[in-house]
Simulated scan of single mutants.
Amino acid sequence: MMNYPVVSIGIGSYNNARYLVTLLDSVQAQTYPAIELIVVDDCSTDDSAEVIENWIKQTGYPVIFVQHEKNQGVVRTFSDCTQLANGQYVSLVGSDDVLDPDLIAQTVAEFDRRGPKCGAVYADCRLIDATGQEIAPSFLRYFNPTYADSPPEGNLIVPLLRGLYLPTLTTTVRREALEAVGPHDETLFSEDLDMWLRISRSFDFAYLPAVLGAYRVHDRSAIHTNKLALNETYFRIYRKGYFEGPEEWAAARHSLADHAEHYYASQGPEAPARLWFAFQETRLPKTALFWLMARLGVKYTALRRATGR
Score class of each variant (00 low, 15 high):
283 R>L: 08
1 M>T: 12
166 L>C: 11
207 Y>E: 15
90 V>N: 01
163 G>A: 08
78 F>W: 05
61 Y>L: 03
56 I>C: 07
189 F>M: 09
68 H>S: 02
296 L>I: 12
226 N>T: 09
50 E>W: 10
157 I>L: 04
3 N>Q: 09
85 A>S: 07
90 V>P: 12
45 T>D: 04
173 V>S: 00
62 P>D: 02
279 F>L: 07
197 L>N: 05
111 F>W: 13
271 A>V: 09
145 P>V: 14
241 G>K: 07
104 I>M: 05
158 V>S: 07
156 L>Q: 04
280 Q>V: 11
214 A>P: 13
236 R>A: 15
23 L>D: 00
253 R>Y: 03
190 S>M: 06
176 E>H: 11
171 T>A: 01
26 S>T: 05
143 F>A: 10
130 A>D: 11
35 I>L: 03
1 M>V: 11
265 A>F: 13
124 D>Q: 08
97 D>I: 07
100 D>P: 13
137 P>A: 06
183 P>S: 05
24 L>E: 01
223 I>V: 15
243 F>S: 02
33 P>W: 00
272 P>F: 03
109 A>Q: 15
298 V>C: 03
229 A>I: 05
114 R>T: 12
204 D>H: 02
210 A>N: 15
20 L>A: 00
270 E>C: 11
277 F>H: 15
54 N>E: 14
295 R>W: 13
189 F>H: 14
242 Y>A: 12
43 C>N: 06
111 F>M: 09
251 A>I: 03
125 C>G: 15
46 D>Q: 12
87 G>S: 02
121 V>D: 06
290 F>Q: 02
176 E>Y: 08
188 L>G: 14
288 A>L: 10
113 R>I: 09
39 V>M: 10
